[in-house]
Write a protein that binds this DNA or RNA. Sequence first.
DNA 1: ATATTATGACTGACCAGTCAGTCATTTTTG
DNA 2: CAAAAATGACTGACTGGTCAGTCATAATAT
Lengths: 221, 221
Amino acid sequence: MVANPRRKRTAARRGEAAPAQDARVARREKRRVAILDAALEQFAARGFAATRLDDVARRARIAKGTIYLYFRDKESLFQELVRTMLSPLVGTIEAAPLSEVPIRAVVEMIVDVFVREIYGTRRKDVIRLIISEGPRFPKLADIYYREVIARVLPVIRARLSLAVKRGELSSDALARFPQLLVAPALVAIIWNGLFGRMAPLDIGELMRAHLELLFGERGAT
Amino acid sequence: MVANPRRKRTAARRGEAAPAQDARVARREKRRVAILDAALEQFAARGFAATRLDDVARRARIAKGTIYLYFRDKESLFQELVRTMLSPLVGTIEAAPLSEVPIRAVVEMIVDVFVREIYGTRRKDVIRLIISEGPRFPKLADIYYREVIARVLPVIRARLSLAVKRGELSSDALARFPQLLVAPALVAIIWNGLFGRMAPLDIGELMRAHLELLFGERGAT
DNA sequence: ATATTATGACTGACCAGTCAGTCATTTTTG
DNA sequence: CAAAAATGACTGACTGGTCAGTCATAATAT
């Protein structure tokens, strides 16, 4: 799109952003979110292949054709969904108080972010989707790795290595495999997705037990 | 199937198991396995919904209609696959030398079974399938829970509780959440399924590090 | 000859993606 | 200012293709 001279003139004359234009943009964004919302619901409930875009459209209260005005195709919609839901979270870890805090507090903070911001929100459904569909959509696994894992993991690993050097940790096991830190939380997501009906797993207690194994008895709660 | 009178007569007359009959049974079983094999390959590669029974048939070198002589429908085939692959494994744990062995050896044995018998075989694909498709097939999650989890978990939990009572373990965290024991192995399966191309995770090293965190430095290897 | 097993063409349901047409809103013209 | 023209967001019927499951027929075994 080329800049429109008409628009410029109007905005200049009134000394404000063109209101009609802004309303359009806002409306467009609202629709986009509505589609993504509906898509998450359907993909989470039925998986990628079994989700019908007719249903997504119905949930979003639009016609099916409209989806194609916002997303290239079903797979793009799926990818955008993952990107939109997870990318914002990365900042939280990247910007966190780094090395000024004792390692136990750092670890508890990471675990807490995971439990509250993922397990406690619809993001857990996105994680489930990545686990389920990722192997069949290399592009999806790629996006997730590049935009989340590759940005968060090194930060955490660096802090853990520092803790080893400082003598805060007696073993370098965690620094070498930071995955060990969140593995139980991931398992809780999976477990409750599968067996929540018959044997729900209390993620709070689970992670408390996990930290107990890592650091020994009770810490600040 | 009702007992076949012809078979009885033949066996009696010849004083041996009816050979023709046995050949039939064997042939039938071989076909069944061929179908299950092909199905595992396809389901693992494409997921339940995207797998075509035409492809399964081609892989098994039979016609599509033949599948329906061995399995009621696509979903039954899927369920039978899971049952057939995992049930045999349960015996291994159930029959293992229980409380005569020190707890660390018990734990290492459990981890080892997991790594060798699941991660090291096509059973890991079955686990992946359960994780991926389970939420959409409650019947599948049910089967897996009843036939595997519900039989293995109590045994392991009991042994861990005993270890706590005996003073072999200083914390009851593991006894309360035996899931913590295998969580890293599960994460390794998932991780390598998603990111194996760009950042493979060495499950041997991972589990060694895990045990190090649970028990402190090196044990018997 | 009969029963059992296997085949693969066929059917009907299903669904992603398209596109010609509608309509509300905005811009231009007189 | 009102009428006319332009815009572009939105719709939903339609198409082409896919695939689970069936069944009449054929091959094989007894």
